[in-house]
């Protein structure tokens, strides 16, 4: 589904350059549940930004369904983010001045194609599915962290994306609420066939996934050669 080949990302800060990623190659297969595990500053967020088409690699290629996205225009990248990828962030990243329902509906506003579903009906289905009924007119800062993350997941799913990218989805939640969120992501993968990539620094979270990739100092490791 997504293929990264010899991807490097170089940043220049105050004239000095450093590599956030070095020669990273891997593939995300359709319908898989994948964890990318690494400590703070390892480059895992950079991987997520590149997979999520929020950033470009300095070197290497990123292919989505066989298409090289480096040649995509801003409009094409936005369209791909809108239709193919759903984001779930550690900070939830909901827009506080919009209601829960408006937050969930937001991706449908930016679509370029005619929707095959009624956005409001689908949003209400997701609200019901994630136990948020009665909260649709509330604002994000009036609900709990766990509820906010469920809203974020609902927003990520409204366009029926093939891939959900979750960056530290439990980072701001207590263990019980975090587990509930992970249950939800796992269920999405298992029951709805959505590809889920979880980026985390917590081995316990990563252990919930079938496949794990390890990242440290911008380099990717498989389990066998990764040492903490």
């Amino acid at each position: 589904m997504i293929n990264l080949s010899h991807v490097s990302k170089e940043y220049k800060l105050s004239g000095e350059s450093f590599f956030a990623l070095r020669d990273v190659s891997f593939e995300i297969k359709e319908k898989e549940l994948l964890a990318i595990l690494g400590p703070s500053g390892s480059g895992k967020s950079t991987v997520m930004h590149i997979i999520g088409l929020l950033d470009n690699p300095t070197e290497g290629t990123v292919k989505i369904n066989g298409k090289d996205v480096s040649k995509y225009t801003d409009n094409e990248l936005s369209l791909a983010r809108n239709e193919t990828i759903g984001f779930v962030f550690q900070q939830f990243n909901l827009i506080n001045k919009l209601t829960i329902l408006e937050n969930i509906l937001l991706p449908t506003i930016y679509t370029r194609h005619k929707l095959t579903f009624d956005p409001k009906t689908r949003a209400m289905e997701l609200i019901a599915k994630f136990g948020l009924l009665g909260k649709e007119r509330s604002f994000p800062n009036k609900i709990s962290g766990g509820q906010q993350q469920r809203v974020a997941i609902a927003r990520a799913l409204i366009m029926n994306p093939k891939l959900v990218l979750a960056d530290e989805p439990t980072g701001n939640l207590d263990t019980k609420t975090g587990n509930a969120i992970l249950d939800l992501l796992e269920k999405l993968n298992k029951e709805d066939g959505v590809t889920v990539v979880i980026i985390t620094h917590e081995p316990d979270v990563a252990n919930r996934c079938k496949r794990k990739l390890y990242i440290r100092d911008g380099k990717l490791y498989t389990k066998s050669d990764y040492t903490v």
Binding site: G52, L54, D74, N75, S78, L79, R81, N82, E83, F87, N93, L94, I95, L106, P107, Y110, T111, R155, M159
Partner: peptide
Amino acid sequence: IGIRRAIGATKKD
């Protein structure tokens, strides 16, 4: 702006 861009808003939007 970043959130809107992440969920599909173009520069023009």
